[in-house]
């Protein structure tokens, strides 16, 4: 089963405010060869945008696990919880 189809099953109360920020996009472009965030995020929130030469962040699909905060080798992802009441809302847990 494809990840996109699975994410479609998840319930979100999407906030207008983005709770994820790339601290310095130049670090992604110049220092980070491997870009592991594009793989280790269970929801594939992070994607390398070849045209814009930056990591695009689809915060709306964030499952709030916190992997990116710990996994980014440059500590370049500022990940916080969404505001109270927003974000993922599990049906089963």
């Amino acid at each position: 089963m494809k990840l996109d189809d699975k994410l479609y099953l998840v319930r979100f109360n999407t906030d207008k405010l983005n709770h994820i920020k790339i601290s310095d996009p130049k670090v992604c472009l110049n220092q980070c060869q491997d870009k592991p965030c594009t793989r280790f995020c269970p929801a594939h929130v992070y994607d390398w945008d070849e045209e814009e030469k930056r990591i695009s962040v689809g915060y709306e699909g964030c499952l709030e696990c916190g992997t990116c905060l710990i996994g980014c080798p440059y500590g370049n992802i500022i990940w916080k919880y969404p505001r109270g009441g927003f974000g993922v809302s599990w049906k089963n847990g």
Partner: peptide, 9 residues
Amino acid sequence: ETKEYLAHL
């Protein structure tokens, strides 16, 4: 039938 996909640390 998959009902939900979840992630956690």
